[in-house]
């Protein structure tokens, strides 16, 4: 053991006693956390630091991507099979699309008869999922599309099978979206079979959502499909969210224990769609954005406040 003193280069913290230093840092940290949690004030700091972190995140992505690329390169058979499967899938979808065009037009006409606004104009942007949460206690994904592509906070994210989540942070070159399975996230849903409205809450596990607010006499069965109800103005209406996997009646409890499995491939997909939906009554949504802006950071749905809104 050998201690070499380096007299001309004492760090700042050596001159302050560590005990005092830790107290100061604790106070500054708690202040920062409160300010950061409260709103957007620190986002310039975050932007600068996240640009610095970008190369590191890219480096972390690199091994996985290389493996996939190599895999594709060497396994021609798999590539051909995939191509074949996609071709068939495409044909199938094209077929359905023909019907959809007619249905859409019909729907539009009927809506016009009912004198209600049209909701069917939706733009999408394909985003690559750069990484899933390295923190096992939070469920989110990082996307390679940011504010330069027009991504905004609160934007809904879907994949081929259903709703995935919503965007919570946007930097110029990327964004972060909280998944519906995050314990902090709730999706207003309705049971497709009965139209019963409720909220699907994340649990922290990618395979499970829970529906905590269904009374004992609710009409719900295993296998029921949950679709987004569009209440709250964050998630567009009528996208599949989850399928009920278990319904338990807890003796003495006021609510059912209902679990559901998300239909979207939350931790397996590589691509996702960001959607721009033209919301129904425009100014209504704008006001809901305002009311929910204080907790944008935590991306919590203002469930109670907004679900009651007509």
């Amino acid at each position: 053991m050998k201690i070499e003193d380096d007299n001309n280069n004492h760090a700042l913290t050596r001159r302050i006693a560590p005990g005092l230093g830790i107290v100061m840092i604790a106070i500054i940290s708690i202040g920062l956390m409160i300010v950061d949690d409260a709103g957007e004030k620190l986002s310039p700091v975050r932007d600068v630091l996240s640009v610095m972190a970008q190369p590191i995140e890219m480096a972390a992505e690199w091994p996985g991507q290389t493996l996939t690329t190599l895999d594709r390169y060497f396994d021609r058979g798999a590539l051909l099979r995939e191509n074949e499967r996609l071709r068939q899938n495409n044909l199938l979808l094209q077929g359905r699309l023909q019907r959809l065009a007619a249905l859409e037009a019909e729907n539009e006409r009927i809506r016009a008869l009912l004198a209600s606004a049209s909701v069917l104009d939706q733009n999408v942007l394909i985003a690559r999922i750069m990484s899933v949460s390295p923190d096992p206690y939070r469920q989110y994904v990082k996307l390679n599309k940011g504010s330069t592509d027009g991504v905004f906070v609160g934007q809904a994210l879907i994949d081929a099978h259903g709703i995935m989540g919503q965007v919570t942070d946007v930097t110029p070159l990327g964004s972060r979206a909280i998944l519906i399975s995050d314990p902090n996230n709730g999706v207003p849903v309705e049971i497709n079979r009965t139209g019963l409205q409720t909220i699907a809450q994340g649990t922290g596990h990618a395979e499970t959502l829970t529906l905590p607010f269904l009374p004992n006499n609710a009409d719900v069965e295993v296998g029921d499909l949950l679709v987004s109800s569009g209440l709250g103005g964050r998630y567009p209406a009528d996208y599949p969210v989850a399928k009920i996997t278990s319904v338990r009646h807890r003796p003495g409890g006021e609510f059912l224990d209902v679990d559901a499995a998300p239909t979207a491939e939350l931790e397996r997909g590589r691509e996702a769609l960001l959607i721009w939906s033209t919301p129904e009554p425009a100014e209504d949504i704008a006001s809901s954005e305002e009311t929910s802006s204080p907790d944008d950071g935590s991306a919590e749905e203002n469930d109670d406040a907004e679900a009651d809104r007509p």
Partner: peptide, 30 residues
Amino acid sequence: QPYRFGLLAAWVAGLMIDIVYGTPLAEHGL
């Protein structure tokens, strides 16, 4: 590196984690 890497450096290093995890700033810093 008792003379070159102290509390402040550790705090800044922790802030980087907050950035990449997207947690409230200074949670991992603290």
